[in-house]
Design a protein around this nucleic acid. Sequence first.
DNA 1: CTATAATTAATTGTGTCCAATTTAATAAAG
DNA 2: CTTTATTAAATTGGACACAATTAATTATAG
Lengths: 141, 141
Amino acid sequence: MNYDALKLENQLCFPLYACAREIVKRYKPFLDEIDLTYTQYIAMMVLWEHRQVTSKLLGEKLRLDSGTLTPVLKKLEEKGLVDRARDPQDERNLVVTLTPRGEALRTAAARVPEQMAACVSLEPDEAATLYKLLYKLLGNN
Amino acid sequence: MNYDALKLENQLCFPLYACAREIVKRYKPFLDEIDLTYTQYIAMMVLWEHRQVTSKLLGEKLRLDSGTLTPVLKKLEEKGLVDRARDPQDERNLVVTLTPRGEALRTAAARVPEQMAACVSLEPDEAATLYKLLYKLLGNN
DNA sequence: CTATAATTAATTGTGTCCAATTTAATAAAG
DNA sequence: CTTTATTAAATTGGACACAATTAATTATAG
């Protein structure tokens, strides 16, 4: 019996898994400067863009469920970066809103993508191809 | 000030991060059948190929440190799939060896890559490109 | 040979992730 | 209007992932 398909080097999943962790690791020194974890950072990204979102919408954008999101949002609230409140129109919904302090962090955060760009050794066209392939993989969920 | 670089949709890191989690999630039903988590599965892959490795080498291959690996290997030992023992030549090293039961699992595991292939909607050439780009990204660590 | 350095696992603490369940609120059906 | 179904967050439990520290062993320098 041929077990080649079971070799680590023949997996597509493994470099994907390793790469994702590697990139998060490369973000860490830059994110440390603004005291955010990677998960907190991508949550803040959505808030910087929209200022206010429901937990449900945030979860859809980040592809994370409440089990992950709830503690992250509580942490961001603790840091004074967001407010958490129920929607009076529908109390099932949690509305997350950027605070002035959260908004203020945006300027410092803007330097992160610049710094990261220097860390990724892909040509622009390679990055574009990678981006497209990843979204194609994600697409059919 | 232009904050476009801070938008989630303009990140390369995010689809990478989301994709990695998505793929692990798609593995789950197949891995459940052989009672392995994803991390346990990739550790077993190395063992199926080499039968015996040090914890250090395994960590290098999987890009995981002892903080992650130690509990995973203890779990695999609990399940009777591997043995854990110190190297008599150098007691700092932990030698992990496949048990007959671990070896026996290989046949069942061989079906996992087949089943997964059907789950990934990329053309062979696209998968090859993705593979190459991911390893290029990983390369310069 | 002995003190110091280096190497390897294990441990500790924090923060995800996710499946499954629970709780609360709203919607829909009868 | 009330019972049932649906929806959304929170909670719980298990398993990573990693930085930092500790402990044990081996190597090296003087």
